[in-house]
């Protein structure tokens, strides 16, 4: 069974994609969670979904766009959504999380309307919702490699700014950090990551991979750096074990990955409790 992963192209693409997702989701997730913006991923994933539906509709109706991967429309919508969220956060300063339900329902509303206009799609929408191994194409993988390179490059180059803004936005501002630009760029990266990860984990479950490994990591990490590192380890374990079992048992890949991530979280919480009781 394990040899299949090297033998078949689509499984190799899936494996590589999974490894990349397991790397970038928890990194962005750590910054999102400490800023209490963990729901942001949920909001953006629904906007991405409407973008995918729009992409499918356009490729169905307009011959020119037939060959365009709906993923790119997902990315486009997601990025626009992230800019909109930043705008809304400024408008509703004291109710910053209000931006999320606004953007989430807009995305979902648009999605259902687009489906009804198209009168259904031939393509398997289910795979976009929950992730499916066989749907990962070479093009999807390339898009993900691009996004991952930008995310990792950004975190390498402006780690200290991201940390400062996340820890204490006012202090960062007084230190002369361009916090607006950094916030905006960060949200764009989250949007791109969500769109690029969609094929494997699915739109509805992507926020789980962004938040669950970090939730487990927060329990045991001794520093911010460790929080990121442990979160990556948990996310990679979830992705690799999840993909393996999904293929073996013919389960939905996104769901399986999330279940592994939840199991890790429960184990970490359990072990911590036992340790505390023994002390």
């Amino acid at each position: 069974m394990l040899a299949d992963w090297w033998q078949y192209d689509f499984l190799r693409y899936t494996l590589f994609s999974g490894i990349l997702i397991g790397l970038i989701c928890p990194i962005l997730g750590t910054f999102l969670i400490v800023r209490r913006l963990s729901m942001m991923a949920d909001g953006l994933s629904h906007v991405t979904l409407s973008g995918v539906a729009a992409g499918m509709l356009i490729s169905k109706k307009i011959a020119l766009f037939q060959a365009v991967n709906p993923l790119f429309f997902g990315m486009l919508f997601s990025v626009i959504g992230s800019l909109f969220i930043e705008r809304l956060r400024k408008v509703y300063k004291s109710y910053q999380d209000l931006a999320i339900p606004i953007i989430l329902s807009t995305g979902l509303g648009l999605f259902t309307v687009l489906i009804s206009i198209a009168k259904g799609f031939n393509t398997d929408l289910y795979s976009y919702l929950f992730g499916k191994i066989v749907t990962v194409s070479k093009e999807d993988l390339y898009a993900l490699i691009g996004v991952a390179a930008v995310v990792l490059g950004t975190v390498f180059l402006i780690y200290k700014e991201l940390f400062a803004v996340s820890f204490d936005e006012e202090f960062a501002r007084v230190s002369g950090v361009a916090r607006r630009s950094i916030n905006l760029w960060f949200m764009v990266l989250v949007a791109l990551t969500i769109a690029a990860s969609m094929r494997i984990v699915g739109v509805l479950l992507i926020s789980a991979l962004i938040t669950l490994p970090v939730a487990a990591s927060l329990q045991i990490a001794g520093s911010f750096r460790q929080t990121i590192l442990y979160a990556i380890v948990f996310a990679e374990t979830s992705v690799l074990a999840g993909l393996y079992f999904a293929y073996l048992l013919d389960w939905a890949s996104g769901g399986t990955i999330v279940l592994v991530a939840v199991s890790i979280l429960l184990i970490v919480l359990g072990v911590k409790k036992i340790k505390a009781a023994l002390r």
Binding site: V34, F163, L218, F224
Partner: peptide
């Protein structure tokens, strides 16, 4: 916040 004195 999960940061050390050194990091802050």
């Amino acid at each position: 916040f999960p940061a050390t004195v050194r990091e802050v």
